[in-house]
Amino acid sequence: MSRPVLSIRDLKVEFVTRRGVLRAIDGVSFDIARGEVLGVVGESGAGKSLTGSAVIGLIDPPGRIAGGEILLNGERIDDLPAAAMREIRGRRIGMVFQDPLTSLNPLYRVGDQITETILAHLDVSAAEARRRAIDLLKEVGIPAAERRIDGYPHEFPGGMRQRVVLALALCAEPDLVIADEPTTALDVSVQAQIIALLRRLCAERGTAVMLITHDMGVIAETADRVAVMYAGRVAEIGPVRAVVKDPLHPYAKGLMGSIPTLEGAADRLVQIPGSMPRLNAIPRGCAFRPRCGSAFARCHIERPEPLRVGEHDVACFLYAQGAPAEPAAAGPGTEARR
C-alpha cells in the first residue's frame, strides 16, 4: 500500500485554563489512505471534532496541540507557520461543517464565495474560476447552476446549501476532506443524498475522507474503516464491517448494541450505563473502566494501548495476555440486556 494521505501519530491536544491544563485528546493515532473513508464515531465530547480541527490547524486558543505529529502525504503539517498552514487549508484539506445554514456568509453570493476560494488557491483567471464554480455546482447537483451561482445563500434550501458547502470544500481538489457531522442539521430525507454525494465525489477524485458523525447508520453505509473514540482516545479502529458486526472493545460493543435493528423490535434499546467523564476527571487507568462491566484489576492502574486483534486495533486489556476470562462474553451490552 502506498503512503497514507493522512497520518496522525500520538496526537495530544490540551486546553490551558485557569484551573490547570485539560487534556482533551490524549494520544490519538490513525491513518487514512487515498480514496478511503474513515468514520470517526463517539459520544459528544469524545474529541472527534477536535481531532478534525487539529488536522486542519483550526484549534483556537486556549487550545493547543501539545504533542504528536500530523502528516499529510508524509509531510509534517502540525508545526507549520500560520501562512503555510493557510495554504494547506482549502487547497489540500477541505472541510465541511455541520450546519450548512450558518457555514456560508449570508452577505456574499454563493458564486463569489466559491470563486474567492478557487482564486485563493489556484493560479487561474477570474473568468476561469467562475467557469469552474459553475461546473462544480452542476457536479454537486444544483439545478440551473448558471443562474443559481449569482444567488445568495438564503435563497437555497438546507440540502442545497450543504451541496454548495461540499462544492466549496472540493473546489481546489484537496487530498483530504474532513466532514464534521455533515448531515446532522439536515432533514432525514436529504441526509442520504448528501452522504451519497460526498461518497461519490471523493471516490471519483480519490479524495480521502475523515467522516465525523455519531450516526452509526451513516458510518455503516459510507465508511471503509471506523474509529471509535472515547474520552480523547481511540478505543477501537478497524474495517467498518468488522467493527460494526463484531466489536471488541466494551465501549464499542455498547455503542453498536444501542443501534436499533429491524428484527429486534420489542426490546428496549441498550444503554451504556453512566456518562463519559469530564476532562478534569478522567479516571486513572482505562478511561472507560467506571462504566465497563468487564473491568478487572489491571484496568484501574494502567492505561491500555492499542493491540492488534485480527483486523481490529483495540485499546483494551481484555485482549492482552493475562486477561481474566473469556472476553467476548462480557461487556456492558450483555450486562444491560440481562
Partner: peptide, 17 residues
C-alpha cells in the same frame, strides 16, 4: 465567532480578506 468565519478560515482564505 460565527460558523461562516470559521468556514472561511477552513477554506484557506487570507486573514485580511
Amino acid at each position: 465567532r460565527t460558523d461562516y468565519i470559521r468556514f472561511a478560515r477552513a477554506r484557506g482564505l487570507r486573514t485580511r480578506s
